[in-house]
Simulated assay, not measured.
Amino acid sequence: MSTTQSLITILKAELKAAGLTYASLARELKLAESSVKRMFAKGEMPLSRIDEICRVLKTDFAELSRQVADTQALRRELTLEQEAAVVADPKLLLCAICAMSQWTFDQIIATYTISEPECIARFVQLDRLGILELRPMNRYRLRLAKTFRWHPDGPVMQYFRGKVVGDYFDGGFDGEGEMLMLVHGQIGRSLANLFNERLQRVAADFAQQHLADQKLPPEQKRQYTLIIGMRSWLFGAFRALKRDPDSPVPSIASRAGGR
């Protein structure tokens, strides 16, 4: 659905929720009912008319825009070709990761050795790839769903496994605010998704805190990278020790040497 169609659909829904018919809206706008019907049917109305309708509905254009944005389809994944394009250019990958972490345009160019024209060019590419929607003044809106994920064996994850994971885990995790934890156990299959949802909320909280702390002076901030993962997995050295489920468990007597 196009942005214009979405706007018309939302306006119709708002009119219905407010109990307003085309006839009553026409009276408020001092127009003929036929003109209002035609305006909605064709989806053609100037911004000044939309403002008038917002006044009648006791809302504003910003709220309508938010609702339109919420109706736009969000990507859950990219194609393998699109992922390959992202990792082919380190500066494009940098801008993609920063955008997904809610960094502003100004933050990116202030933190990294990437010029304003270079950053704009990468934002344009990310717009074409469907990762974000570029807006005036170098602002953007992410077009990725909360369930977005890179292909498990696609170009991006291959890049991270080959070049990022080792670098990340090479540290001691003993600095200020650092932690490394590995928890192993068995849980019901139905609960795994609940834990994933909780972990997604932790990631969202981290991203929101990043936004909230932007007004802090530089000396009060420190750059952190949060990695969250959960999979059905057993360390290779442990797998070699795993008992065959069909083999009998030795009795206490046999473990004690038959005594």
Rank of each mutant, 00 (worst) to 15 (best):
G185H: 05
Q186M: 13
Q186S: 10
Q186Y: 10
I187E: 05
R189A: 15
S190H: 10
S190C: 03
L191Q: 15
L191G: 04
F195T: 13
N196V: 13
N196W: 02
E197P: 00
E197F: 00
E197V: 05
L199N: 08
Q200P: 00
V202A: 11
A204P: 01
A204S: 14
D205A: 11
D205T: 05
F206H: 08
A207V: 12
A207K: 13
Q208Y: 01
Q209P: 00
A212C: 03
A212M: 09
Q214E: 12
Q214D: 05
Q214I: 10
Q214H: 03
K215R: 11
L216E: 11
P217N: 04
P217L: 07
P217D: 04
Q220P: 01
Q220Y: 02
Q220H: 14
K221Y: 05
Q223H: 09
Y224N: 02
T225H: 02
T225Y: 00
L226G: 04
L226Y: 04
L226E: 08
I227A: 13
I228L: 15
I228S: 09
G229S: 11
G229V: 03
R231D: 13
W233E: 09
W233V: 06
L234V: 14
G236Y: 04
G236E: 15
A237T: 07
A237V: 06
F238R: 09
R239Q: 13
A240C: 02
A240T: 07
A240V: 04
L241A: 09
L241G: 04
L241I: 02
R243V: 09
